[in-house]
Amino acid sequence: MPELPEVEVSRLGITPHLEGQIIKNIVVRQRQLRWWIPEEIHGLHGHTIKSIRRRAKYLLIDTDAGTAIIHLGMSGSLRVLEHPPEPTKHDHVDLVLGNGKVMRYNDPRRFGAWLWSEAGESHALIDNCGPEPLSDDFSAQWMQERANNKRVAVKTFIMNNSHVVGVGNIYASESLFAAKVAPIIPAYKLSLDDWQRLVKEIKLVLHKAIQQGGTTLKDFAQTDGKPGYFAQELQVYGRAGEPCRVCDELIQQQKIGQRNTFFCPRCQPA
């Protein structure tokens, strides 16, 4: 599933082609994604794209009429095409621009979404999101206060979007390893020093992943079709049974919150 770095890489990839362009047409071939694509999405027609933002794992395409909200789901991707070929089975939405280019949304599993909010309004899916992990609002003090009396495993805690947005499964495992924090420790047990290390590493890991173009494991590709190269940097995720690159202990795998979690028992003692 595309996580925050992959969504940010997608935003960076499409912005130079879309920002300032007039939307000439919206072609919807398949309305049944995770939710039905609302008819209001056609309100984009004829309007200029003012900006393209990211909030959590959502891409927001702003116009004077309103905002299209895109979620890539499990397998969604965006490509900007100068000479678009005939659409394939999973090419569900085209945003046709005045410059002749097309932003094409492809989603084989159809777990993604295209949603709509009127100008000046917000959307319920975004209203309750916590701070962005790369912002100053995301701090050790904030996380320690939120973790007070929380007995849930710290990995599950940092993946909760009400505490901080966009720390998905891959980057949670990688950040916990870098901070030398065991993923199973209850969140309330972390000291301020622990949170300072973990918050620092979350920011570093996400920033590096964005620089590397995200992580390609199965479905993700950048908007130019290239894979994300952060997979080559992974220290623990997907490496169960392989030696730790720091201490040579074998990487272990465990289900935490129904998600596969990877860690080094020596570098991250519980």
Rank of each mutant, 00 (worst) to 15 (best):
M1N: 09
L4T: 04
V7R: 05
V9H: 10
R11Q: 08
R11L: 11
L12Q: 14
I14A: 02
G20P: 10
I23F: 05
L33F: 03
P38G: 01
E40D: 10
E40C: 00
T48N: 06
T48V: 13
A56G: 10
L60S: 03
G66R: 00
T67M: 05
G76C: 05
G76D: 04
E82S: 15
P87S: 00
K89H: 10
K89Q: 09
D91P: 02
H92Q: 04
V96A: 01
G98P: 15
G98N: 12
N99S: 10
M103A: 12
R104P: 00
R109F: 00
H123W: 08
H123M: 09
A124R: 13
I126R: 06
I126M: 14
G130R: 06
P131H: 11
E132H: 12
D136T: 13
D137W: 09
F138M: 04
S139F: 06
V165R: 09
G168F: 10
N169Q: 08
K180S: 09
Y188L: 09
Y188R: 14
K189G: 11
L190V: 03
D193G: 00
Q196E: 14
K208Y: 12
A209M: 09
Q211P: 07
Q211N: 07
Q212N: 13
G213T: 07
L217M: 14
K218A: 07
P227W: 12
E233W: 12
R239K: 15
A240K: 10
G241L: 10
E242M: 12
R245P: 11
L250D: 08
I251S: 03
I251M: 05
G257H: 11
G257N: 09
Q258A: 10
R259T: 13
R259V: 13
F262C: 07
R266P: 02
